[in-house]
Design a protein around this nucleic acid. Sequence first.
DNA 1: TTGAAAGCGCTAACAC
DNA 2: GTGTTAGCGCTTTCAA
Lengths: 358, 358
Amino acid sequence: MASSIKDVATRAGISIATVSRAVNTPERVSAETLARVQAAMDALQYRPNALGRQLRAMHTGLLGVVLPSLANPVFAECMQGIEDAASVTGQRVMLMTTAYDLEREARAIETLLEQRVDGLVLTVADAAANPHLDRLDAEHVPYVLVYNDTVGQPRIPARCCVTVDNRAAARDAIRALLAQGHKQIRMLTGTLSASDRAALRHDGYREALEAAGIAPQPPVEIDFNADVMLPAELARLLAPPRPTAIFCSNDRLALLTIRSLREMGLRVPEDVSVIGFDGLAMGQWLMPTLATVAQPHRQIGEGAAQALARRIAGEVVPSITLPHRLLHGGTLARAPAAPASLSVVPSSLTSDTQGASR
Amino acid sequence: MASSIKDVATRAGISIATVSRAVNTPERVSAETLARVQAAMDALQYRPNALGRQLRAMHTGLLGVVLPSLANPVFAECMQGIEDAASVTGQRVMLMTTAYDLEREARAIETLLEQRVDGLVLTVADAAANPHLDRLDAEHVPYVLVYNDTVGQPRIPARCCVTVDNRAAARDAIRALLAQGHKQIRMLTGTLSASDRAALRHDGYREALEAAGIAPQPPVEIDFNADVMLPAELARLLAPPRPTAIFCSNDRLALLTIRSLREMGLRVPEDVSVIGFDGLAMGQWLMPTLATVAQPHRQIGEGAAQALARRIAGEVVPSITLPHRLLHGGTLARAPAAPASLSVVPSSLTSDTQGASR
DNA sequence: TTGAAAGCGCTAACAC
DNA sequence: GTGTTAGCGCTTTCAA
């Protein structure tokens, strides 16, 4: 049984109030008593009980974090940023993951609020249409969104998002492709309707192409969690007019694409250029390095924790748009004079069903 | 101000005891009062305060997690496993990261214990020589280690580790290399003294080679966090007798190695085979896929959470050794008849100091 | 089936 | 500089 303030008081032969002062405001305690308290605390291995303190104080110094999954390095890095920033100000962090499941999201928020976190950092599928956020607003719970991007959207009141400018970032990616002479640029994305930022990235894709006088092809949507590309999907991705470059809405998809292309005998970047989105550290360990639009995940997390701290303090905090950075990696090269021909239908287009059947 | 049990009681015209029962043991409350309590709770948006409950109950249902960093996908995945398992039993999870810093480790543990977590899951640099673990033992705090591997070590009492058999796993990696005709096999590792498991992997490397009648070369140690390989390190890695295969103590190092080799014109796996350790999901998205010894990170996390639950319940729980899995990826091929010659000293061996100077 | 009351560990207002 | 005491929100005896 852990010892309490009472035990310390008894042992030091003083009142609990003085022990409390010794712990929290030692300057208001005489040197002599302070020493006695110290001795007692050491002897008893006293460790203040945060629960008692928090119950009394009506706040906890706890931040609740609700993210889809740590298996995605994007969120893992962001979480690290949150933790870093929180630890600087002595806040602690409670994490719950949701796998984008609305019901788990609800439970997570509820649990965190029962624990009386001072505020929440969260990522949801679509921030403009999330019932839980409406409730948080109604209950005046301080919260900050990460990655969700409602900045351009008309909302009153606006939600505090810490994010990059997804649309502009996507435009930059496409422009980098255009600058290398690419005209046929296809987009590969996770389910558009399931992610506000994916939709925004698609907008950027369209805009950049249209500004260049090129008619964008419809994006190829594939299941967010797949770790193989189905033959049908690959076929759609390469359907005529054969693309010389592919813009993927995230790095994971980009890696998957590169692999699929190579398996069917296409060279990256000689035959097809590929650019991703996220800037996973890992992409830069590869050879060739992955061309991508890097998001400052760590800073997104840190920024969110800081913004949240201010919201908790009662400030009105606007959304924060952090700069993205185009990484001109080795998977991006000049467009080939003529698209590589696929004389033979590669095996992966016909027989790779077994690997894909999970 | 959030409403409390007292508010609900007042509004429902009953005592707080009955409200408490309505929440926790509704079967002991008459249907009629239950309805009244429900109505009051809804009207007041009542949310039970976990702090009060926990203070009273003398346990919290909180698990403390202490890990080096979530930027490392190994720990991120493990953390996801912990969270998954915890959420099944209604436990919640508080995370603190340490960057392997002993002082941060101490603070993290202290903070978590002040919050009265029921137990801890942690990874430390060297479990056999960690002062904090000794204190946890002395205070009878339930805890479980992940990745740390003291299984083979004589210790009384043994610490509960959830891990793979690092030594055997390394042996398997080397055997796979031997089976492909490799005779000159070098090992690349992070600082050996800083990691009990790296040391064990090195043991496995030595053993497997010696069993095959081959004298192992000393391992090449490089800074754990570097994201470029220094020319001097690369030179040591390739020093005669020129290796035809390289065993890296983790996947990150393996990726780095592959990149460095390719930059100097060596082909992987044609000239040099590379095998890693960890089984990062990402390694399988690459082309060629990374040969590696996969650890079941998710299950390690889940297993730890479950083991911890049992320790909290008072059981004595032995260490758990989870199976590793050899992934025979594309970066591993038959040894070349003669090692590739490096006629010219590649530029990366002489001039790449700028990239490395961070 | 319900209520009164004690107490979990702590802080802060107030009195000395 | 120190002590007394109320009370944060909750559960759980014990009585009724």
